[in-house]
Simulated scan of single mutants.
Amino acid sequence: MIVVATADFEVYHGVVTELRDRGAAFTTIEPGDEWPEETDVAVIAAGEAVEIPDGVDLVQADPERPRRAVEAAIAALRGESGRTIVGIDPGERPGVAVVHGEMVVAAFQVPAADAAEVVHREVEDAADPVVRIGDGARLVGSRLVDDLSDVPVELVDETGTTPYLGSGARGMGDVLAAVNIARLEGEEITSRDVEPTAGELQRIKDRSREVSDTNRAIDAELARDVAEGTYTIEEALAEHRGDAESEGSEESDGGDDGDSAD
């Protein structure tokens, strides 16, 4: 059983809330109280001096990161010591799954521009993390590889990783695919050079028209910038509007600059 024993209210509140959200069995005691005989894992505040019984696993919780402490406590309770693996199903809104040992400890679906930040946050304290990225959605995947240059990355054949989604599971496909990708070994890579195809550029232009307030698509040059990660579609649209407004202003200011006759 997990036992929370801390005088730090912030740690206590954060850890207990996370444990309840996870449906984990636990109890709490005051530091110095007698420990329950069934104690397997003790959670205290980082730096706190609490005497722990022999044979009990110790987890020290950062008040800013109670979820990490709970994940560590549950892993210790299950006797798991596997590495942290992050699986990513790339796309416009990538699915991201964090796996520790045999457990999925976190899952996300975020805009592509935010995926690398999420991954960095999730592996920050991990001793030996690896990120596994599906080989689909090549342009997004290549940008993620570049953005995660400080983390070991593997490229995974994602064929068959998206499961059949039954009734009520709509919208979960990318996250479940990310879980499957995390469980497959891939080829370790440090970069992935991808030249966008004409079809990929056209899809970016079509997407820009869909999100544009004026039903206008960005041009091919800006579409390439989006494909290469220089701009998001929204930023490219703003750049496109600025260029159009500038051209319109120049045209309105044009005309006969010659001297008028007296």
Rank of each mutant, 00 (worst) to 15 (best):
A236F: 04
A97R: 01
T197I: 05
R121S: 10
I29M: 11
G47N: 07
E200H: 05
V41T: 00
A24T: 10
E48R: 05
H120T: 06
R209A: 13
E185D: 10
R209I: 10
Q109K: 15
G160L: 13
P53G: 09
D40Q: 14
P152W: 02
E245A: 09
A116F: 04
E158G: 06
E247L: 12
P90A: 10
P63V: 03
G171E: 13
V118F: 01
V104C: 13
D33V: 01
E247N: 10
S81M: 06
V131K: 00
A244P: 13
G136Q: 05
E188L: 07
R22Q: 12
L184G: 15
R203I: 07
E71V: 13
G173M: 07
R132W: 13
E250P: 10
I233T: 15
V59L: 00
E245W: 11
E37G: 12
E251H: 05
S212P: 10
A69Q: 07
L201F: 03
P94W: 00
H120P: 05
V11F: 14
G91Q: 06
V104Y: 10
E250T: 15
A61G: 05
H13W: 14
E188V: 05
I181Q: 02
R68C: 09
D157T: 06
V175M: 12
E239W: 14
R203V: 09
V59Q: 00
A116G: 01
G141D: 04
S260C: 12
R192V: 00
T84Q: 10
D213Y: 06
A25C: 09
V56K: 02
D62A: 03
D147C: 03
E92A: 11
R143H: 01
I218K: 02
E117W: 04
E64S: 08
S149Q: 07
A97H: 00
D128G: 01
R93C: 08
E195V: 06
A45Y: 00
A76M: 03
D89Q: 09
D157M: 04
I204L: 09
G91V: 02
R209Y: 08
A61S: 05
I233C: 03
E18G: 09
D33H: 11
L148W: 00
R170A: 08
G101M: 04
D256I: 09
S142R: 00
P31C: 13
A61H: 01
L77D: 01
D21E: 14
D33G: 03
P63T: 05
A238T: 07
A126V: 02
E195G: 12
V151S: 01
G87I: 05
I189E: 11
E38V: 15
V140I: 14
V131P: 00
I133F: 03
A169W: 11
D256F: 15
P90S: 12
G254N: 12
A198M: 04
A42F: 02
R183Y: 06
E18S: 12
V16L: 13
D213P: 05
A49C: 03
E158V: 07
V86Y: 01
A116M: 14
S246Y: 15
D21C: 06
T161V: 10
E158H: 06
V179W: 00
W35F: 09
T159N: 11
V56C: 02
E158T: 08
P111W: 03
R207W: 01
A177R: 08
A69D: 05
A261S: 15
G141N: 08
A244W: 03
A169L: 15
